[in-house]
Amino acid sequence: MKPRKSSCSTRSPPGTAIPRACPPPSEEALACGCITLSTRHAGIPEAVEHGVNGLLTEEWDETGFAAAITRILDDPARGTMARAARATAEAKFDNAKGLARVEDIIRATVQAR
């Protein structure tokens, strides 16, 4: 699947990088509209919603991981999950949208004073 071009970016401008709870490869997979299969580790479950835009397994659960791969491949409606993956990235990782949310919070805080 070819990545779609959009304003969605998972990369921070040079010198502005901040630690992320969700690893960039998970964000990038979602941004490409890929069903993401990962573990319930760190902040991954904040981005990958089990059964919605990907599947999650426990760490070191090889049997569960293999079953999840089979589930994805056998699911005739996996396109729905792939579209949800892309929508998640656009909603959560679009730098312009994130900046707008921060600006809204700052404005509301200033106006409340």
Rank of each mutant, 00 (worst) to 15 (best):
K2Y: 08
P3M: 00
K5E: 10
S6C: 04
C8E: 09
S12C: 12
S12I: 04
P14G: 08
G15E: 03
G15Y: 04
T16E: 15
T16D: 11
T16L: 15
T16C: 08
A17W: 11
A17F: 13
P19R: 14
R20S: 11
A21S: 14
P25L: 01
S26E: 10
A31H: 01
I35R: 01
T36E: 05
T36N: 05
T36V: 06
S38G: 12
T39N: 00
T39Q: 01
R40Y: 06
H41W: 14
I44S: 06
I44A: 05
P45D: 07
P45M: 06
E46Q: 06
A47L: 11
V48M: 04
E49N: 10
H50D: 13
V52E: 13
N53D: 12
G54Q: 02
T57H: 11
E58F: 07
E58G: 08
E59A: 14
D61S: 07
D61R: 11
T63V: 13
G64L: 03
F65V: 09
A67C: 09
A68Q: 12
T70M: 09
T70W: 10
R71P: 04
I72F: 04
L73V: 02
L73N: 01
L73K: 00
D74C: 11
D75F: 01
D75P: 00
P76V: 03
P76A: 00
A77R: 13
A77W: 09
A77C: 12
G79N: 04
T80K: 15
T80I: 08
M81K: 15
R83N: 14
A84Y: 05
A84F: 00
R86I: 02
A87T: 02
T88A: 08
T88D: 05
A91I: 05
A91C: 08
F93Q: 07
A96Q: 10
K97L: 12
A100E: 15
R101H: 13
R101Q: 13
R101G: 11
V102R: 12
E103V: 09
E103Q: 09
E103T: 05
D104V: 10
I105W: 14
I105H: 13
A108C: 13
T109Y: 05
V110R: 07
Q111A: 15
Q111T: 11
A112V: 00
A112T: 07
R113Y: 14
